[in-house]
């Protein structure tokens, strides 16, 4: 741009004579829904429902395994709090006639090896696969977790914060777990948060809850007492800030 044009630009726009910089306090908002077809794999100890031991590993095998990534886009797939979300490479999508299937193999010291087929179908963009581990030599039946009670609807809007990048804001699309803060029970599945938004009828008015997401092999939590019908919650999500 030549000097004349620069001068003209300065005169026209800058001398529109205001005090504030137009971009002051404006953040760049980034969505995380790069991977469209996802499956949350939740591995628990079948005897008590608690998350799988920290040493538990997961391996994805099958002809389509090369197209499977962790929700954060990483090829390295690890469990955190017994949870991982896997999904298809964005350029790959199942069709009605051709679903895509892979096998998840779970190994944990002292537990029997578990394998489970995960099938991505055109009509199902999100799915939850629960895998209960059984201890080697144990014949005890796995615990059955009762479904959580139902209450009135509550809307939650989650925003991901980048501790080292105040100019960035994350709008997460991720599976959410919850439990009452004063409870020793395991986290239960709440639902899928789409672009930061989730509406649920599993939260009791007056109750205080811990919410948990797993993203990029990291577990992030936030607590909130519920006494309104909508909340804006903020999570630190450094694993989503590598832009």
């Amino acid at each position: 741009m030549d000097t004349l044009r620069k001068t003209r630009w300065l005169l026209v726009m800058l001398t529109l004579a205001a005090c504030k910089k137009p971009t002051e306090n404006i953040k760049i908002v980034i969505d995380t829904d790069v991977i469209k077809y996802t499956a949350l794999i939740n591995v628990t100890d079948g005897q008590n429902g608690s998350p799988a031991p920290a040493a538990t590993t997961i391996a994805i095998t099958g002809t389509a395994a090369n197209d499977i990534f962790e929700l954060s886009g990483k090829k390295d797939i690890k469990l955190s709090s017994g949870i991982v979300t896997i999904g298809l490479r964005p350029t790959v999508a199942p069709t009605t006639n051709q679903p895509i299937t892979v096998t998840a193999e779970i190994n944990a010291p002292g537990y029997n090896r578990e394998t489970r087929q995960v099938t991505f179908r055109a009509e199902t963009k999100q799915q939850v696969i629960n895998i209960q581990l059984t201890k080697t030599g144990s014949t005890a039946p796995p615990v059955v977790t009762p479904p959580p009670p139902v209450f009135n609807n509550v809307s939650l809007t989650f925003t991901g914060r980048c501790p080292n990048r105040t100019d960035l804001e994350i709008r997460p699309s991720v599976y959410v777990y919850f439990k009452k803060s004063d409870s020793n029970a395991a986290f239960q599945y709440l639902g899928y948060m789409d672009k930061g938004n989730i509406s649920t009828n599993l939260l009791e008015q007056g109750g205080t809850y811990d919410f948990q997401i797993v993203y990029g092999a990291e577990t992030y939590k936030v607590s909130q007492k519920i006494d309104q019908t909508s909340y804006n919650l903020t999570l630190d999500m450094p694993a989503a800030c590598n832009f």
Partner: peptide, 25 residues
């Protein structure tokens, strides 16, 4: 658009920043 679709949420802040840009010399 794309991964940046959520930036429409920044409209109120932008509107506030720009509201005094009214003098055209």
């Amino acid at each position: 658009t794309g991964l940046l679709e959520g930036n429409s949420s920044q409209t109120p802040q932008f509107q506030s920043n720009i509201k005094d840009y009214r003098w055209l010399p």
